[in-house]
Design a binder for these strands. Sequence first.
DNA 1: AAGATTACCTGAAGGC
DNA 2: TGCCTTCAGGTAATCT
Length: 297
Amino acid sequence: MPELAEVETVARGLRPLVGRRILGVRFGKTDFIADPRRLASLLPGTRLVTVSRRGKLLLIELEREAAAAKERGEGLWLLIHLGMTGQLVLREPSEPSAPHTHVWFSLDDGRELRYVDIRRFGRMRLATAEELAAIVAPLGADPLEVSEEEFRRRLGASRARVKSILLDQGVLRGLGNIYADESLWRARIHPLRRGAELSGEELARLWRAIRSVAREAIRLRGTSVSDYVDANGRPGSYQKRLRVYRRAGQPCKRCGRAIERIVVAGRGSHFCPQCQPAHRARANRRGAGKRKKPLGS
DNA sequence: AAGATTACCTGAAGGC
DNA sequence: TGCCTTCAGGTAATCT
């Protein structure tokens, strides 16, 4: 699934396109595109200026031709979210299109950038600078840039299950189910624990675990367990490093106990019952619901 | 009103 | 063989 490491890898694969022009766009199904006619009218003739990533969101900055840019001085961004099964791949126009290809961008170097998405959970839209600011405003901290202090503050302020918190893009941007499970295993924290009940030591372990998992996943160009490939159609290799994700019933790499799978936040959650104990201490949570003081302030 | 659950979508896999 | 159900998880919408 495209999480931060996969989107980062796709962004890096597209970066050589900076300077290229989009000559035209063709569409298949468009129900995942905010305003396909706007793309059809504005994209042709634009030049790619930057390719970047914000969480799981891919940002392609475009520059209009001098004449068109005059009417509105501001920039234009093509925003693409890959959802679950979205792929952006560079192909020669002569190559047959994969099933579920829904957008074809023709480029001035003769190639095509194709958007493929089996389930169409992805999203695509154009945005002005103002619209872009509003879209990224709700996103939380970057997992690789957040300080340990801010991380502890954000996680410790929530009574939700820690697994849910890690998946919340408003807290940390870019983590998905795979890296959330892998990070919790590394930090030896049970997915059902609540953010506010984690000790300072546990939060510190989790902060470090997320950083090392994210760095390693980017280095290995992402995880390919089902559909993910990069801009050149190549899979990543972090799947070889997975310790718990989709390993239910198999032995823990640390202690040998069978990995278990439960559902948290509607997601399959994999953990080691030995390494990741469900309770910090002898928790008698009777009366815990009476707490009324919100933490902080 | 934060936190939990469900809907969207298609293909793979398992049951009978 | 083939039909049916379940599962996979990105976010948005809906519930409690």
